[in-house]
């Protein structure tokens, strides 16, 4: 018999709107991508000095994960090694890759920056989330052309059912050429703040919401 798991909280940030657990908590549709993400950070007083050092992709992942875990403080419930972070996107780190490429393309203005280069890997955003929340469990970054609820849904269920994790922070964080989209949720074995069954149908519904 299949064991059921639950989406116990979720947060989406797209098109100038922040939605936490089904409620729109902030919006400003006039700001450009980066300015909007910074305004979310200020609005919710997320106070984390390293925020400004992050690239745009990590900034987006940071605000989404912070708002999510503020609504559902899973780390009070689970040991660091029992929580997994499994996230995917389409553009990998191409936004900051382009910036690094620009620092090396001109021989007369050649100044590659370590603070830029370090972000040219998409999984750095998992690292930033892990550091902020002290999460030490399974971590994997996947790339898909678009959000793949079928794979993500079944893989997270197999991690939880196979005792590889007790809780998973999972979803989609993409940022490229001014387009941005974050959808993160927590999946647990027991019902929580929300008790939406964790499957591809529900993931798609919440993602497209």
């Amino acid at each position: 018999m299949e064991t059921k798991n639950y989406i116990t909280s979720y947060c989406s940030i797209k098109s100038g709107k922040v939605n936490v657990n089904g409620k729109e908590t902030y919006s400003d549709i006039n700001l450009s991508s980066v300015d909007f993400i910074k305004s979310v950070y200020k609005q919710f007083q997320l106070n984390y000095p390293k925020f400004y050092k992050m690239d745009h992709l990590c900034k987006l992942a940071f605000v989404a994960s912070d708002l999510l875990l503020k609504s559902n403080p899973i780390m009070q419930k689970y040991a660091p090694e029992d929580v997994s972070v499994i996230i995917a996107n389409s553009a990998s780190s191409l936004e900051i890759d382009t910036e690094h490429q620009n620092t090396i393309s001109d021989k007369n203005n050649y100044f590659p920056s370590p603070a830029v280069f370090v972000y040219t890997l998409p999984n750095i955003l998992i690292g930033e989330i892990a550091i902020r929340n002290c999460i030490k469990g399974e971590n994997t970054f996947f790339i898909f052309d678009k959000f793949d609820a079928d794979f993500m849904g079944s893989y997270i269920n197999s991690l939880l059912n196979g005792s590889k994790a007790k809780c998973s922070l999972t979803g989609w964080v993409d940022f490229y050429e001014n387009n941005y989209e974050a959808f993160l949720c927590t999946v647990e074995k027991e019902e929580g703040i929300l008790n939406i069954e964790h499957n591809s149908e529900q993931l798609n519904k919440l993602y497209n919401n």
């Binding site: 000095p49 100044f111 590659p112 920056s113 370590p114 603070a115 370090v118």
Partner: peptide
């Protein structure tokens, strides 16, 4: 200022640039 190892490398870039 609480800078770290990446910042140290970044300051080297600043001196050169």
């Amino acid at each position: 200022l609480g800078l770290d190892s990446i910042d140290a490398l970044e300051l080297i870039v600043l001196l050169e640039k």
